[in-house]
Write a protein that binds this DNA or RNA. Structure first.
Lengths: 363, 363
DNA sequence: TTGTATGCGTTATCAA
DNA sequence: TTGATAACGCATACAA
């Protein structure tokens, strides 16, 4: 095989025009199937398309943007890639954008406000046509929205609802999820249940707990306040594990009996299990544990985790579809309004929970 | 606060020129600190910079590209975001690019050759200045390289070395890692050891196994072929768990005693632990298990996993630094040549291994 | 030390 | 039906 070390010369629309014997304007019309393409002779179209294919013409995205203001890209801002539940979301987003031939420009705020702002600037500098933000901490201020809607960039958030009517959102129904988790334990016959609530700063914490409380109330289950603890406000997704571990130790020291534990999320649940195991209690034989999220690895832990599943990939997909809709609406200057979606969680029963009747707590 | 619902008008260099009373050319020179900026009067610079700041001027990335061929973006192609070891790599890449004010354009090949090719096209259409590929399956052909080097786009691969001298690479020293794992078990006194090798298609499998064999040979340890099994070639990162589970069951049925198990990677190890547990064997009391990778969640599993750590984030960082070097070299048309890095793995001892003397296998 | 003019590759508006 | 031309925002060679 011959080795050509020379650079690949970029083949432009003009090259196609020359090769086909038509003008650049005609080529542009044909290749974009613009409205005027209706009036172009089929033979002409064919010759142009053939020439383009033969030369391997690929439109220059940048030049196109300069004229049409379309960058064919969407900003995707994560608050922390390291959080295990980002991966499925990312896949969902990527998949939807891929369908529309848009590329995601990726940014990671590392859970820092200043970094978030800087990332946002970079994304805007690259003229993303829309923005998707995956966040669950509360520190982003409203300034963000102003910026975006003034530049009319459609935006959607995942795991986070912003006040006002300028940003679409996709969140899980935390209240339903909180209910589902407790309901499961209750139906298994558990009555002495310990709870680890989410950090105050985390937006999911409150509604999830509310769902739990409501269910308890509806069946007349009393939640013992001394069996309820709360994760601290720490800016690290994996700190849930550490927190679950420490808080469980603390609960254990209180010497009150509990046959089940409802953890704020899966990582917390894993921390709980670690602490219980260390205290020579087996899960679920001595204590059932239920998590939240259904992070990819909770099916592989030992024991596998019963949890409330968030359809993360679907949520990413939905968010991306929404912003694509917004982009297209803007293009055709149709009317369009933002939407807020609350998707349903789903109980996934695995090996970390069992009927209370079978539970043996050694006093 | 007054609400301006009008679009934000893009402020261009011309606006800055007018506001400061200088020409666009001078503004350009100053704002880019181009070579000629040396000759510009400090007072002029100041006035221009002030005007730019006051107007909130932000250069238009697309227009700049059209002139200078610089998109300030790097393509990042993953073979599967779903693979838990992608997240740390992604973080490393993002971090390095962020330092250089480059943005990552993200693509996911979903482990499919056709999708890989299509993604590559999309990235090239967006004129990424460099490409980083995270891959461990073998199916990408050399055509890729030709394309890239002809367009002289610097490229780097992670977890994968490509033949030839056109692509930089960052891989872990699999041979050393394979050695480390067995060495650990050996020093704990284990002699009856079972092995789950990686899939043949996976590029890491061979060298890792070679390191293991070499060590065994060096200490006169005999590897019993009937205690060696191999994962099938399945295109799914999480299939390791399933495979580890099934293969362990198979090994158990052979009724040969083993006190330790060396798994190809962490997910496989988790599958192994699941199977052992199901067979009423405790880890590590009845059987020690060692994994590979140190995926984020292996520290949280029960028991926590002893494993050979790949410095994933550092590897991502390194790859990004390399391509940035390549980009800069190209810009200043300096000579530059690709580099191949083999980073050292590190043994992380946790709770899934213990001394053989303490191991009790019930016959 | 600063300004003028040109072109990067497209697309849109006219005119032919 | 198709072609000429201008403009998008910026950076550079050249002129002043």
């Amino acid at each position: 095989m011959k080795r050509h070390s020379g650079k690949v010369k970029m083949v432009t629309m003009r090259d196609v025009a020359q090769a086909s014997g038509f003008s650049p304007a005609t080529v542009s019309i044909v290749l974009n199937s613009a409205p005027l393409a209706r009036y172009i002779a089929p033979a002409t179209k064919k010759r142009i398309e053939d020439a383009a294919k033969k030369l391997g013409y690929r439109p220059n995205a940048m030049a196109r943007f300069l004229r049409s203001k379309r960058s064919q890209s969407v900003g995707v801002m994560l608050f922390d890639v390291t959080d295990p539940f980002c991966a499925p979301i990312l896949r969902g987003i990527e998949n939807a954008l891929y369908q529309s031939s848009y590329v995601p420009i990726f940014a990671d705020a590392h859970n820092q406000k200043s970094r978030f702002e800087h990332c946002l600037e970079m994304l805007l500098d690259h003229h993303v046509e829309a923005l998707i933000v995956v966040a669950n901490w509360l520190f982003v201020d409203i300034q963000l929205l102003a910026d975006l809607s003034k530049r009319n960039i459609t935006a959607a958030t995942i795991c986070w609802e912003v006040p006002g009517d300028s940003v679409s959102s996709v969140i899980v129904d935390n209240e339903a999820g909180g209910r589902l988790a407790l309901e499961h334990l209750y139906h298994l016959g558990h009555r002495k249940i310990a709870f680890i609530r989410g950090p105050k700063m985390l937006i999911d914490s409150a509604p999830r707990w509310k769902g739990t409380q409501k269910f308890a109330h509806s069946v007349g289950l009393e939640i013992d306040p001394s069996m309820v603890v709360q994760l601290p406000d720490v800016w690290d997704p994996n700190s849930g594990f550490e927190g679950g571990y420490r808080l469980t130790e603390e609960l254990l020291q209180r010497k009150k009996k509990f046959t089940a534990m409802m953890a704020f999320d899966d990582l917390t649940a894993l921390g709980v299990i670690r602490a219980l195991t260390k205290a020579r209690m087996k899960v679920p034989e001595h204590c059932s544990v239920v998590g939240f999220d259904d992070v990819p690895l909770s099916s592989m832990s030992a024991p596998s985790l019963t949890t409330v599943r968030q359809p993360l990939e679907a949520m990413g997909n939905l968010a991306a579809s929404i912003v694509m809709e917004g982009i297209n609406a803007g293009l055709e200057n149709r009317e369009w309004s933002i939407s807020r979606h609350k998707v349903s969680p789903e109980l996934v029963i695995r090996d970390s929970t069992m009927a209370a009747a079978l539970t043996a707590w050694d006093d």
